[in-house]
């Protein structure tokens, strides 16, 4: 039995780098390289304008580091457009911002931004909205499930 444990542990240690290191090209990083070449007019203040489509196109895999450009947005003030997910309840503190109003029951983890309203409450707006706030990007986990990847804290919904 001790030999078995030793073999398994040795295998694990040697395998770890090959499993954790992914040398394939990251689509997200390349997308941003292109994205960064474009204009970033800002959302009226000093916010960085971020495309929700660029975030959606990140090649996300659980446990793998997010592309550098996304990591660099963490904690920054950003401006994002999108739609309130259909079914957003009124009077709540948070909602999902999605690239198309009807994701229709299929919500991939990198396809939405979890928005928290620090002052206001939700009121469903069916059209496209632009929000400005502090962005965070990291896996948030509850009971072993990833519940969000992108988060935005903003005072309230646009009027």
């Amino acid at each position: 039995m001790p030999l078995y444990i030793l073999i398994v542990l040795l295998g694990g240690i040697l395998a770890a780098p090959s499993l954790l290191m992914d040398t394939t090209k990251s689509v997200g990083e390349m997308a941003l390289k292109a994205y960064e070449r474009g204009p970033k007019p800002g959302g009226g203040g000093d916010a960085i304008e971020v495309s929700i489509l660029a975030l959606k196109n990140v090649n996300y895999r659980r446990g793998r580091a997010l592309p550098k450009w996304v990591q660099e947005l963490d904690g920054k003030r950003v401006s994002l457009w999108g739609y309130m997910a259909i079914g957003t309840l009124e009077g709540r503190e948070s909602f999902e911002l999605v690239p198309e109003s009807c994701e229709c029951g299929r919500s991939k983890i990198n396809h939405f931004v979890d928005v928290t309203l620090t002052k206001g409450r939700t009121k469903y707006i069916p059209g496209r909205i632009t929000l400005e706030g502090v962005f965070h990007a990291s896996e948030e986990e509850t009971d072993g499930f990833i519940t969000s990847l992108y988060r935005l804290r903003t005072p309230e919904l646009p009027r």
Binding site: V27, M30, A31, A34, R37, S51, A54, N57
Partner: peptide
Amino acid sequence: GKMARYDAMRALMDRGIDLGEYNPEL
């Protein structure tokens, strides 16, 4: 249209195709 630009760009990049200066956001 922009969504299609992103999807096409991603699919091509996944196949290792260099897109040069193309920017789907523009």
